[in-house]
């Protein structure tokens, strides 16, 4: 009987496990394996080189720059998009006229494909003829070369990403807000708690499971988003806006160097796994599940 339970269990997860293994786990193993071989050509076949590809990465100044960019990108987009998402959710959770339209308006950036959104923003940021410079021009301010200046290019990409992501996270907060029991708010009112105290002491802790979920997704997205780079900057100028995933793409398809791309992928995987584990370990204790 026990063995049969056990066998049934495995049989039940088999389809999902098979799909995951075929499309996720095997490719990961394959990637790690490929990262240990040299780049082969018809004349010189690939051979085992151990950690050479990783050493080459460590010696590559662009790699460190790209890694730094990506961390800055995560720090710049994750807290901002979560805060904005929460603020928007609180706003549209109330009974307002035109609530549906407002919710849709906030969600609209999320529905646009990234490539389309990036093309829109390309013309916002274009010097002189772009929307941003035209607005600045109204106030007599000079135009800026937004995407052509290493100092402004990454903040420009971050702004666009926050705009794009916040609406998506808002949906989760909105769903969570709508399940909050109204008694809590009434009780807080009776006790004389102000709005801020209620939010700080009651509502925000109740939303922690959602925040946890959103946070993990936001951090992953900060490393996974790459489409906008193709349209906006191609990682330039001088790698000032290059991100890990785009750098992987460059290695695989522009440099035709698959082992180096595999090594970079292994680094990215380790980084993401590490981040996810840390977040679970740090935050799980603080999350209040009902």
């Amino acid at each position: 009987m026990r063995i049969r339970d056990w066998a049934t269990g495995y049989l039940l997860i088999l389809p999902a496990a098979a799909v995951l293994a075929a499309f996720t786990h095997l490719p990961i193993v394959r990637t790690v394996r490929d990262s240990l071989f040299s780049r082969g050509s018809a004349i010189r076949p690939a051979r085992f080189v151990g950690l050479d590809n990783f050493e080459a990465l460590a010696a590559d100044p662009v790699f460190w720059k790209v890694l730094g960019n990506n961390l800055a990108f995560a720090l710049g987009t994750v807290p901002a998009s979560i805060a904005l998402a929460l603020a928007m959710a609180l706003l549209v959770d109330r009974k307002l006229k035109g609530q549906g339209v407002l919710r849709l308006a906030y969600f609209l950036p999320t529905m646009l494909p990234m490539i389309a959104a990036a093309n829109l923003w390309l013309f916002f940021y274009t010097p002189d003829i772009g929307l941003l410079d035209q607005i600045l021009g109204r106030f007599g301010l000079p135009g800026r070369n937004w995407l052509g200046d290493p100092a402004t290019v990454l903040p420009c990409l971050m702004t666009m990403t926050v705009w794009k992501e916040a609406g998506f996270f808002m949906i989760f907060y909105l769903a969570a807000l709508q399940t909050q029991p109204p008694e809590l708010k009434e009780a807080a009112r009776l006790e004389g708690a102000g709005r801020w105290v209620y939010f700080r002491r009651v509502l925000f802790p109740m939303l922690m499971p959602t925040t946890m979920f959103v946070l993990i997704n936001a951090v992953l997205n900060a490393f996974k988003l790459v489409d906008h780079l193709f349209v906006l900057t191609k990682g330039g100028p001088n790698n000032a806006s290059n991100l890990l995933l785009y750098y992987i793409f460059e290695h695989a398809f522009a440099f035709n160097d698959l082992p180096a791309a595999a090594a970079l992928t292994a680094v990215l995987l380790a980084l993401l796994a590490g981040l996810a584990v840390t977040q679970f370990a740090l935050l799980d204790r603080r999350v209040h599940y009902r």
Binding site: L122, F123, T126, P127, D128, I129, N145, L147, G148, D149, P150, V231, G236, P237
Partner: peptide, 19 residues
């Protein structure tokens, strides 16, 4: 010429708009 880099993709539009 603008300082910094000049975008390949939007330059034609800049020219067409007289910028």
């Amino acid at each position: 010429m603008p300082e910094g880099t000049v975008e390949w993709g939007t330059l034609r539009q800049q020219f067409l708009e007289g910028k």
